[in-house]
Simulated assay, not measured.
Amino acid sequence: MDSGKVINMVPKFKMSKGLITFGLVALILLIVTLNAFVIINAGQRGIVLQLGAVRPVVLTEGLHFKIPFIQDVVHVDVRVQKSQSDQTAASKDLQIVTTTVAVNFHLEPNQVNKLYQNVGLAYGERIVDPAIGEAVKAITAQYTAEELISKRSEVSAKIKETLALKLATYYMILDEINITEFKFSEEFNNAIEQKQIAEQQALKANLDLQRIEIEAKQKIEQAKAEAESLRLQKQEVTTELVKLREIEAQIKAIEKWDGKLPNVTGGAVPFVDVNSAQ
């Protein structure tokens, strides 16, 4: 090869090498720049890990700087979450009760780094679900099966209080708890149904008895009123009143008489037939 051509190729090679080096440096700087910032979305918090260790700082919503390749950020949702499950427990009178419980809770935003350090992100199955089961069993055992139904709001309030204390230990806040259903055994349901039928029959019998008693009292009072009326009338009867009633009766008889005498009468003195005599 001609030595002149080789000499001419050296500057071109050096120029190409310089461009490649510049490109690599620019690419590295771009990657470093992009890796130096992190965005925390709404309803989230950022847990900073520096070489695997949890930092005490918690990143709020927005844009943040982090040390490239040294720090990592774990995004954690701090909005309200729901956990619903069926919990089986024994009541005070040893009835098996299946309770459907819906729980709303959220993480303490400023303590998510401690939760991550102590529990991790699987806090639902590790903490929340077992805590719900334990709270339901503890409170259900304090009431009979019938009381669980009649005192539903009280039972729910006690479960909420017990569960809130358990979740607070792991930096979680209980928002609300709803008991959507109580399920009992078929034998217990049949017993409740028979009891309700018996209570309805007893109520009907009691109402009938009250009605009979009221009617009897009404008849007694009516009889008393009639007796009192007769007593008052008897007190008012005098000889003059009797004669007056007799005269009134005779007057009514005369008013009804058609002017004809009877043809025959029983007795010693016969009546004369006036018509035949005429």
Rank of each mutant, 00 (worst) to 15 (best):
M1W: 07
M1G: 13
K12Q: 06
S16R: 09
L29N: 04
T33V: 07
N35Q: 13
A36C: 13
F37L: 10
L49Y: 04
A53P: 00
H64E: 05
R79M: 08
K82W: 10
K82Y: 11
Q87M: 10
Q87E: 15
I96R: 03
L107C: 11
V112K: 06
N113M: 09
N118Q: 12
N118V: 04
G124R: 12
D129V: 15
I132G: 08
I132T: 11
E154M: 03
S156A: 09
K160P: 02
A164L: 03
L165T: 10
K166L: 10
L167G: 07
A168N: 11
I173Y: 11
I173S: 12
L174C: 02
D175P: 05
E176H: 15
S185W: 06
E187M: 07
Q194E: 14
Q194R: 14
Q200M: 11
Q201L: 14
Q201S: 10
A202N: 13
A205F: 01
L207C: 00
D208T: 13
E213W: 02
E213D: 14
Q218F: 02
I220R: 13
I220M: 11
E226T: 09
E228P: 03
E236L: 06
V237T: 10
I251R: 06
D258G: 12
G259H: 09
G259A: 09
P270R: 14
V272D: 06
V272I: 14
N275M: 09
